[in-house]
Amino acid sequence: MSERMSGGRRRALRTADVARESGYSVQQVRDLEKLGVIPAAARMGNGYRAYTPLHIHALRAYRGLAGAVGPVAARKLLAELRTVTITEAASAINEVHVRLAREREEALLAEQALRAIQTEADTPEFEQDSDAMTITELSRALGVRPSTLRFWEEQGLVTPERVTSLRARRYDLSAIRTARIVAALRNTGYGIPAARALVDSLHRLDGTDEALRILRARLDHIALRTVELLRAGADLAAVVAAEEDPAAS
């Protein structure tokens, strides 16, 4: 970091200074200011923008956040961090870490389910009633709404057992595994037709390779997003600290 941003007497930073320190172009700095990613710069007597080190921290934080959660969510989070207490800001950032951890766990469970499907033909399992789930239990386990499971059923993605005269749904172990895989595929961006084609292939001995490839790619992508979030950490801390103590910026 340049001398302007560390000790000594600090002076106003030009747009070019901010661009060089943040890794964005001059035009990108101006565009991101218009979008509210960074606070509006003060204006000097000659009309030029006057930035501070806080703007550079905010831009670097945005780069990492955008890589972790996408540009729209990153803009929203940075705007939120400028209006809340340090405790609330820390909680908001922690929620992003938790979300990524949940996505990773979901993908790992789907991968485990897929490997079980691969081997179940050779090692049949005795599925006890305790292995089954109601629609409420499964929706909670997957983090989706019961209506989503009903929609997947309508689309031929997940087929539950039906019990009682009220047609209450019950999902056996095989349906639970398939539902985990569908959830991971949908979160990867797979549309309904593509997910259905992949689900239809799962019980063929040669039909699971593509699903495994997709799940591994998703795990790799989550890892990269996590690294981006970690990379943004110090700059996020600087943004939060500056909002808590404006004199620090």
Rank of each mutant, 00 (worst) to 15 (best):
T123G: 06
Y51K: 00
T148Y: 12
G47F: 00
R4I: 13
A66R: 03
R11S: 11
T159S: 14
A66D: 06
L114Q: 09
V72I: 11
G189P: 01
R14I: 06
G36V: 06
Y62G: 02
A19V: 04
L185V: 08
A234L: 09
T134S: 12
A68M: 04
P53L: 07
D245F: 07
V239E: 09
I135C: 12
P124A: 11
I135P: 05
G233E: 08
T15K: 02
T226Q: 00
T87H: 14
I93R: 07
L35T: 04
S201I: 05
A92T: 00
V84K: 03
A92V: 07
T15P: 01
L35W: 04
E105S: 15
A73M: 02
L212F: 07
E154G: 14
R213Q: 10
L59R: 03
A19T: 08
A74P: 00
R231S: 01
N187M: 12
E21Q: 08
A211W: 05
D245R: 13
A232P: 02
R170A: 09
S174C: 13
H57Q: 03
A50V: 04
G233W: 08
R218F: 01
A175F: 00
T123C: 12
D206P: 01
V239R: 06
L149T: 06
R4A: 13
G45L: 13
A184Y: 08
D206M: 02
R11I: 08
E244M: 13
I192C: 10
V98H: 01
L54P: 02
G45C: 09
A40L: 10
F126S: 13
Y171W: 10
T159D: 12
E103M: 08
